[in-house]
Simulated scan of single mutants.
Amino acid sequence: MNPPFRRVLVVVLDGVGVGALPDAAAYGDAGANTLLHVLQRSPSLRLPNFERFGLGRLVPAAGLVSGEGLAACGRMAEKAAGKDSTAGHWELMGVTLEQPLPTYPQGFPEEIISAFTAATGLAVLGNRAASGTDIIRDLGEEHLRSGLPIIYTSSDSVFQIAAHEEVIPVEKLYDLCRKARELLNPFRVGRVIARPFTGRDAAGFRRTAGRHDFSLPPIAPTLLDRLQQAGVPVVGIGKIGDLFAGRGLDESLTTASNADGMAATLECLERVDNGLIIVNLVDFDMLWGHRLDVSGFADGLAAVDAWLPQLTARLRSDDLLLITADHGCDPTTPGTDHSREYVPLLAWFPGLRPDIDLGTRAGFADVAATVGEALGCTCPAGRSFLPELKAGRV
Rank of each mutant, 00 (worst) to 15 (best):
13 L>R: 04
19 G>N: 08
21 L>N: 02
22 P>G: 08
23 D>S: 02
33 N>A: 05
35 L>T: 02
37 H>Y: 07
37 H>L: 05
37 H>R: 13
38 V>G: 03
38 V>M: 00
39 L>P: 00
40 Q>N: 08
43 P>L: 03
43 P>I: 06
43 P>K: 04
47 L>A: 04
50 F>C: 04
56 G>I: 12
57 R>D: 07
62 A>D: 15
63 G>L: 14
63 G>Q: 12
64 L>M: 13
68 E>K: 12
68 E>M: 12
71 A>S: 14
72 A>K: 09
77 A>M: 11
77 A>G: 08
80 A>P: 00
84 D>Q: 01
86 T>H: 01
97 L>E: 02
100 P>C: 08
101 L>P: 04
101 L>Y: 10
104 Y>F: 15
106 Q>W: 10
112 I>M: 12
119 A>I: 05
121 G>I: 05
132 G>F: 06
137 R>Q: 13
143 H>P: 02
145 R>D: 14
147 G>V: 06
148 L>G: 06
153 T>S: 13
162 A>I: 08
162 A>S: 13
162 A>L: 04
164 H>A: 10
166 E>M: 04
167 V>P: 01
168 I>E: 09
171 E>F: 04
171 E>G: 00
172 K>W: 05
174 Y>V: 06
177 C>K: 08
178 R>H: 12
179 K>S: 12
182 E>I: 03
190 G>T: 04
191 R>C: 09
193 I>L: 14
193 I>R: 02
193 I>C: 04
196 P>M: 10
196 P>R: 00
203 A>W: 01
204 G>C: 05
211 R>Y: 13
213 D>N: 12
216 L>D: 01
219 I>S: 13
221 P>Q: 15
222 T>D: 10
225 D>E: 15
226 R>G: 03
226 R>W: 07
230 A>C: 09
235 V>F: 04
236 G>S: 11
237 I>M: 03
237 I>V: 13
240 I>M: 09
253 L>V: 15
256 A>C: 02
259 A>G: 13
259 A>L: 12
261 G>C: 01
266 L>R: 11
268 C>V: 12
271 R>V: 15
273 D>C: 02
275 G>V: 07
279 V>E: 08
286 M>E: 14
295 S>L: 08
300 G>Q: 07
305 D>T: 07
308 L>W: 02
311 L>V: 12
312 T>N: 05
315 L>C: 14
319 D>K: 00
341 E>M: 09
342 Y>N: 07
342 Y>V: 02
343 V>K: 08
344 P>C: 00
349 F>Q: 03
349 F>E: 10
350 P>N: 10
354 P>F: 11
356 I>T: 13
359 G>T: 11
360 T>G: 02
363 G>A: 14
369 A>S: 11
374 A>R: 06
374 A>Q: 10
376 G>M: 11
377 C>I: 15
377 C>Q: 08
379 C>Y: 05
379 C>P: 02
380 P>K: 09
380 P>W: 13
380 P>H: 11
387 P>D: 09
388 E>M: 13
393 R>Q: 15
